[in-house]
Design a protein around this nucleic acid. Structure first.
Lengths: 351, 351
DNA sequence: GTGAAAGCGCTAACAG
DNA sequence: CTGTTAGCGCTTTCAC
């Protein structure tokens, strides 16, 4: 441990702890400390390689300079990319990132947040929530605890969040498929399906169908449990592509589903897009190089992370002050990345 | 904030803080506290939803119950999967994970670790180091600071680590390619190339060539800078596949290189493996579904994370005690996943 | 079996 | 401009 303390620095300089503390915290000017003493202090600090003890500081100030991030699964590229950009941003502000995965379990998520907050004194959190009921977060807000939602919102609960326009993105990509003459389109959603993300994507799908005078068939919408994607997708895809459904296109609502779906289609020796077209939400590296390359709705991951971190830093700093225009609802736009899996090929490796 | 403190609990029970503290920390038995009072305390704690303040506890005990993880880039699936399994393990022990990416910058890495340790009171770290010089870690060890290496070691420095047998894996995969009658094999390494991982993989490549009486041509070994993979790979691949080099196979030493390489080969309209074969270290989801599927050396990511976390927990708990058989050098085995990119096809989508 | 009291290292009134 | 002092909430001797 950094055995040397504030007191050591003060003593070896023959000054008070206060003085050293003020200098270290950049309050030298505010307290009119002479440039000379300030420099002497700074020099000594460097010489002794003094590092303030955060536990002590935290105990005193009630702050930790740590922020928490809770996502469904950090090993999903979608979240790990966002995490990276959050890290980059908060680091500039002297914050560190504490991380946890909820596995889409609402109770676990609550537990994690509580732990972060109450035990570890995390100064604020960024969460991709899997809650349905806003009660927990309402209380958090009442207690004025800095919290930013990413990716998902909770119905009927307005708070600071950074999301993408899921409905619009969803509609556009389904529209594209229909323009490519695929009119019978099955959809794979994922549980928990009550999340805003999934709901909006479903809504976009339905809108696209309606706009093209296609009747919505609820039997073509299959919900896959988060805990057993592999098996469930297999079963679902088989049913969708065969009679009486005979879908000619499959729309999957996230990247894990896409991977599983791709695997099943290959196993079944179905050609994509000739036999069945495939489109997905979430664009990941894999989709560029898969066989065939997959058309997907791409989200600005870096922006999501950066904006969320920015928002959280604002919240933490404003905390007691009156806040301007809160909560901030940031909606970013998606982009359709067209590849051969939907029939309209930009680049097709099978040539 | 959890406004209620130890004192609140004690007061509302009419007992001392000591008592409550002892009960909470499971030392009731050791101090012979009656089952009756213990239960009363526990009940009150629950009723008031008391959460110990970690900052205070940390200040007192010098522990934080946080461990740090430093990797090159958390958005690389290789690290995010490991991170996930570390998280799972340490969580069971009541620890949280603090995360940072070093971007393969040795100075940044040192800075991060110092911060973790000295400022944030992280109880121990797991690091995929990018250092060449062991000095920093030697000092860490002298100060008895718990630290576990994953993925990479530093030459001439023995410490607790969890790695895979890179040399063997590398040799096996190159061997395979040679067995498939590809004898002119170029290799793309990545900087910093002095890491044990890269050195061992290079050694494996050379061994395989030697074992098959193929002359080693240093011109076929190209180092790609971590900071500019895309461009550099493009240039390198073009040179490798054309005269006078005319390689018939490319071996890339990690997954980022593979992705970049795949892209270039497609751009150049070269068929894999007919024109150029491709093999890689690190198996990621993408390789199963890419066109063509890519043969790779697969690493037991979950095991790496779990073992490393286990080791670290041991180190933290042993700290003062005499340790048995330290440092522990855990070497896990890799597995070659054969796919069509190397010529010997198990499953080939191009059919 | 239980309580009193010291003190971890720091910050922030308040004095001067 | 600089120093004194009082805790933040907890653990841990030591006493009873």
């Amino acid at each position: 441990m950094s055995k040397i303390s504030l007191e050591d620095v003060a003593k070896s300089l023959g000054v008070s702890k206060t003085l050293v503390s003020l200098v270290i915290n950049g309050k030298a000017d505010a307290y009119g400390i002479s440039k000379d003493t300030r420099d002497r202090v700074l020099e000594k600090v460097k010489e002794l390689n003094y590092q303030p003890n955060q536990a002590a500081r935290g105990l005193r100030t009630g702050k930790s300079n740590i922020i928490g991030l809770v996502v469904a699964d950090i090993s999903n590229q979608f979240y790990s990319k966002i995490s990276r950009s959050i890290e980059n941003f908060v680091e500039k502000n002297g914050y560190h990132l504490m991380l946890s995965s909820s596995d889409e379990d609402p109770d676990r998520e609550m537990q994690l947040i509580k732990m972060f907050r109450e035990r570890q004194q995390v100064d604020g959190i960024i969460v991709s929530t899997t809650q349905k009921d806003p009660a927990f977060f309402k209380q958090l807000r009442e207690e004025n605890y800095p919290c930013v939602f990413i990716d998902r919102t909770i119905e009927g609960f307005h708070t600071d969040n950074v999301v993408v326009d899921n409905k619009k993105g969803s509609k556009k990509v389904v529209d594209l498929l229909i323009k490519n003459n695929v009119r019978k389109i099955g959809m794979l959603t994922i549980s928990p399906s009550y999340t805003s993300t999934i709901q909006d994507r479903i809504a976009g799908y339905k809108e696209a169908l309606k706009a093209n005078d296609i009747k919505i068939d609820e039997k073509l919408i299959v919900e896959i449990p988060f805990s057993d994607v592999q098996q469930a997708v297999k079963k679902a895809v088989k049913e969708l592509v065969s009679a009486p459904n005979n879908v000619k296109g499959i729309y999957v609502l996230n990247n894990s589903l896409a991977i599983a779906c791709l695997e099943v289609l290959h196993e079944m020796n179905l050609r994509i897009p000739q036999d069945v077209a495939l489109i997905s939400f979430d664009d990941i590296d894999l989709f560029r190089f898969s066989y065939p390359p997959i058309t997907a709705v791409s989200q600005p991951l870096e922006d999501i992370g950066t904006k969320a971190a920015e928002l959280l830093m604002e919240l933490i700093n404003e905390k007691t002050q009156t806040s301007t225009a809160r909560p901030k609802d940031i909606v970013l736009q998606t982009e359709i990345v067209v590849r051969s899996s939907c029939g309209s090929s930009i680049r097709d490796f099978s040539a």
